[in-house]
Amino acid sequence: MPHPVLASPDLIRFEGDTPHLVGSRCDECGEVYFPATDSCTRCTATRMSPHDVGHRGTLWSWTIQGFLPKAPYNSGETPETFRPYGVGYVEMASGIKVESRLTVADETQLQIGMPLELTLIPYRTTGEGEVFTFAFRPSASA
C-alpha cells in the first residue's frame, strides 16, 4: 500500500505500514527531541543522531480545540464546517511528551493515562488529494 501524502514527511518513518515518529537524540547526554533538532538545549552539545521516538504512548494532558484556528492553520475549513479536534501531550517510552492531534474530540472519552497509538489522519484536501498529519488514537495497550 503506498504511504499517504504527509504535511511534513520527515516526522514519520514507516515500519511496514506502521508509522513511527522520528526525532533526534543527543550524542553527549542522551536527551531525546521531537521534532529532530541539531543542538541540545539541555547540555548545549551540537552532535545529534536520528532517533525513533516510537508509536505508542499514554495521554499526559489533553484539551479540545473548540474554535477554528486562524492562519497559518490551513485545513481549509470555515467556521461553519469546522469540527473541534482533540490535542494532547503523549508520553512516549523515553519519557518525552509529544504534542499531537488526537482522533478523539469527546471529553467523556479522554482520560490522562489512557494508552494511545500513532496513526495518520487527513486534515486538509488539495487539488492533488488528501494531506495527512500525525495523530494519536486510543489503543488496547500502551
Partner: peptide, 12 residues
C-alpha cells in the same frame, strides 16, 4: 518552529 506546527493546528 517548523511550519507544520502551525499549519496542522497545534500552535495556539
Amino acid at each position: 518552529l517548523p511550519d507544520w506546527y502551525g499549519e496542522t493546528g497545534l500552535m495556539l
